[in-house]
Deep mutational scan, measured.
Amino acid sequence: TTLHFDLDGKKLQYTGVSEEIARLVEELKRRGVDLKEIVRILEELLK
Rank of each mutant, 00 (worst) to 15 (best):
T1F: 11
T1N: 13
T1A: 10
T1Q: 14
T1C: 03
T1K: 14
T1L: 15
T1D: 09
T2N: 13
T2D: 15
T2K: 05
T2A: 06
T2W: 02
T2Y: 02
L3N: 01
L3Q: 01
L3F: 02
L3A: 00
H4T: 13
H4Q: 11
H4N: 11
F5W: 01
F5L: 05
F5C: 02
F5D: 02
D6A: 03
D6V: 06
D6L: 07
D6G: 01
L7M: 10
L7T: 02
L7Q: 03
L7K: 00
L7I: 15
L7E: 04
D8T: 02
D8I: 01
D8W: 01
D8R: 00
D8G: 06
G9A: 02
G9D: 06
G9M: 01
G9N: 03
K10H: 12
K10D: 10
K10E: 14
K10N: 11
K11Y: 08
K11P: 06
L12E: 03
L12V: 15
L12Q: 04
L12F: 08
L12C: 04
Q13W: 10
Q13K: 11
Q13I: 14
Q13M: 14
Q13E: 15
Y14A: 01
Y14I: 04
Y14N: 00
Y14P: 00
Y14T: 00
Y14M: 03
Y14K: 01
Y14R: 00
Y14V: 04
T15C: 07
T15N: 11
T15P: 10
T15M: 07
T15E: 15
G16Y: 05
G16I: 03
G16M: 05
G16R: 04
G16P: 02
V17K: 00
V17C: 02
V17I: 10
V17H: 00
V17D: 01
S18I: 05
S18A: 07
E19M: 11
E19I: 14
E19C: 03
E19D: 14
E20G: 08
E20C: 06
E20I: 05
E20P: 12
E20T: 08
I21N: 12
I21C: 04
I21P: 02
I21E: 04
I21Y: 06
I21L: 09
A22R: 08
A22S: 09
A22E: 08
A22N: 06
A22G: 08
R23W: 08
R23S: 15
R23K: 13
R23F: 12
L24Y: 15
L24E: 15
V25S: 03
V25D: 00
V25Q: 01
V25Y: 03
E26A: 09
E26V: 09
E26Q: 12
E26C: 09
E27K: 07
E27C: 09
E27I: 07
L28A: 08
L28P: 00
L28D: 05
L28M: 14
L28G: 04
L28H: 12
K29N: 10
K29T: 11
K29V: 15
K29I: 14
K29E: 09
R30W: 09
R30V: 15
R30E: 13
R31T: 14
R31E: 15
R31K: 13
G32I: 06
G32V: 06
V33F: 06
V33C: 05
V33I: 11
D34F: 06
D34V: 11
D34C: 13
D34Y: 06
D34A: 12
D34L: 10
D34T: 09
D34P: 15
D34E: 14
D34N: 12
L35F: 05
L35H: 10
L35I: 14
L35A: 10
L35D: 12
L35T: 15
K36S: 13
K36F: 11
K36L: 12
E37W: 06
E37K: 09
E37D: 12
E37M: 09
E37R: 07
E37H: 07
E37V: 09
I38C: 05
I38F: 01
I38H: 00
I38Q: 07
I38Y: 01
I38K: 00
V39C: 03
V39D: 00
V39Y: 02
V39E: 00
V39T: 03
R40L: 10
R40T: 14
R40M: 11
R40W: 10
I41S: 07
I41P: 00
I41W: 08
I41Q: 11
I41D: 04
I41L: 13
I41V: 13
I41A: 08
L42D: 00
L42S: 01
L42Y: 01
L42M: 06
E43N: 09
E43Q: 05
E43Y: 02
E43W: 02
E43F: 03
E43P: 02
E44V: 11
E44D: 13
L45D: 05
L45Y: 08
L45F: 06
L45K: 14
L45R: 11
L46D: 03
L46K: 03
L46C: 04
K47P: 10
K47M: 12
K47Q: 14
K47R: 12
K47G: 13
K47F: 11
